[in-house]
Nucleic acid binder design. Structure first.
Lengths: 338, 338
DNA sequence: CTGAAAGCGCTAACAA
DNA sequence: TTGTTAGCGCTTTCAG
């Protein structure tokens, strides 16, 4: 004999006012008198009233929900970034509706569509590279969106991120500066991933500028897992001209690479220097601690939340927000032994 | 001069049928003729029609969205679990609405409430310990829910998980069997975390049964981070009676503990054995690889999705699903040197 | 400051 | 197999 959940009208009746007044009171509109507000709140509390979001969204054309499309959650990096975003949105009363495309940009269009179907007020995407159909849909339906982690070179899309290419150049330059000439790169999978591509391009560019080559067999593309990092370092160590410096496209790959060196009894950084990218917590805890590029994850999440909420609110000011990154030199890099 | 987004009625007009037919066609109801279905699909495609989820949810009383409340995403373990759940839900056309309570069970009631406001069809919770107010709200509003990761001892709540206590006992028993007598435990924070509490209790119980003590100063509670694992091991190594075996409540703590041993030049497992819990990817990649308890994360996510969808559908059969866990003996454990 | 009333876009009886 | 119609619960003009 359970009675149905209380609705707005029930609260109104109990409080002795009309439904509109309850709606206004619960939305904390200043026009409601203090006495009425209190009566309404008491009635709502007493009935255990929970607003019906779908009805509200239908009428108000706003769901207080933001959609996030990411490659995967099965990776600490994306998880941390998502967490930062979620926290920042939470502060503004927004919830995150989540979808993963598993590194498939065609699939991304589909999952973004299902997010839109659920009535998200805006969409946060990772990276600058997306299917044209996605951008077309977003424009057509006039859904506010935001690119994150990368800077959009074309200037056509709002974004908050940093320059992956320049950051990667910084790493390569530093290694050249301390004397390295034999390089290898363990890159992320570049297909459909502009961050990985920019990092690889940055390394190539910096080395070329210093007249240093990067042999094709010294560039390995690998998914972002420890195991892949180990495997990549394994084949690098087996190559004819062993590199003295291995630049990795992210910390997970770098940790895998260092682990493989440990397993083979190869000293890091004495025999080979290794660098990461992203500066995850583990990077500083490792022994030796990882030289890497610090990415402002928190700030990114916070800035992304601010900016997507601003576009929703129409206060769409800054279209491109660039964040600074820092090279953090720690224990996995040193000058090569001669 | 952008025209408003197409709605059902627009599709109907273009296809030359009525709105209900479009609704039926798009829902793939078998009663719609093939010819009509095709006309409707073509019209929808042509107009770039995207259904209005709020309207649908309001009318159909179903949002095809599941809410998940977790402690945090800022931890690979919860991220992986969430990912497994998300994937399994995705297969059934459901999306995941996310909220984190940051290890605060009072806050959990609030965030669960905001999930319900958004009209989720069901809620997945982590662990068996929750505020009474949360259970009351769920019952009152008749929202299907599911506890995961733990088994509910009271039998009052549907759950899918495993027996953390028994699993922890297995670890302790194994270490005793290979000769250890001096134990320490790096436990998770037990307040508001029944998984952590059960693991600690299991270790205590197993040791007591074998007449082995666990000194208070050999039990350290620490949040699940590498840094905390290192710090805990640091203080353990400094204690008067140094343990020969350190049982950690999860892999992250265990890896931190092993790292601290490396940093101090203390051999693992020769000088001290270390065990983890959860069997994250990193556990097998580490050098030496971590002895740990394998938790069936994928199966858990999949089973959780099946079960919550079943309760929504009313096919609420199995209320308690117990999954098996395995002790995985690898390189960080060995008999103590005498 | 509060009330009356219209309708957001869709689904599901019911009818044909 | 398809059409007609009545709301789902809420917000928001417009009056008062």
């Amino acid at each position: 004999m359970t009675k149905p959940a209380a609705k707005l009208i029930d609260v109104a009746r109990l409080a002795g006012v009309c439904n509109a007044t309850v709606s206004r009171a619960l939305a904390r509109e200043p026009s409601v008198s203090a006495a009425t507000l209190q009566r309404v709140e008491e009635a709502a509390r007493q009935l255990g009233y929970v607003p019906h979001g779908a009805a509200s969204a239908l009428r108000a054309r706003r769901s207080r929900t933001i959609g996030a499309v990411l490659p995967t959650l099965d990776n600490l990096l994306y998880a941390k970034a998502t967490h930062a975003l979620q926290k920042a949105l939470d502060d503004s009363g927004y919830l995150l509706l989540l979808a993963c495309h598993e590194f498939d940009l065609t699939n991304e269009v589909k999952v973004a569509r299902s997010l839109i179907e659920r009535g998200v007020d805006g969409i946060v995407l990772i990276g600058a590279e997306h299917d044209d159909a996605l951008f077309a849909m977003l424009a057509d339906l006039e859904i506010p969106y935001l690119l994150t982690w990368s800077l959009d070179r074309s200037g056509r899309h709002p974004c908050v991120g940093f320059d992956n290419r320049v950051a990667a150049m910084r790493v390569a330059d530093y290694l050249v500066d301390i004397g390295h000439r034999e390089f290898a790169m363990i890159s992320g999978v570049v297909a459909g991933n502009d961050r990985a591509r920019a990092r690889l391009a940055g390394v190539r560019e910096a080395l070329t500028a210093r007249d240093i080559g990067l042999a094709p067999q010294h560039v390995i593309e690998a998914p972002y897992t420890l195991a892949e990092g180990r495997a990549a370092m394994h084949s690098l160590l087996a190559s004819a001209t062993r590199p003295t410096a291995v630049i990795c496209a992210n910390d997970v790959l770098a940790m895998g690479a260092v682990l493989e060196c440990h397993a083979q009894g190869i000293a890091v950084p004495d025999a080979v220097s290794v660098t990461g990218f992203d500066d995850m917590e583990a990077a500083s805890i490792l022994v030796p601690a990882l030289t890497t590029v610090r990415v402002p994850m928190r700030e990114l999440g916070y800035a992304a939340a601010q900016q997507i909420l601003a576009s929703i609110g129409g206060t769409d000011s800054a279209r491109v927000t660039e964040l600074a990154v820092d090279l953090i030199v720690r224990g996995t890099t040193a000058s090569p032994r001669r």
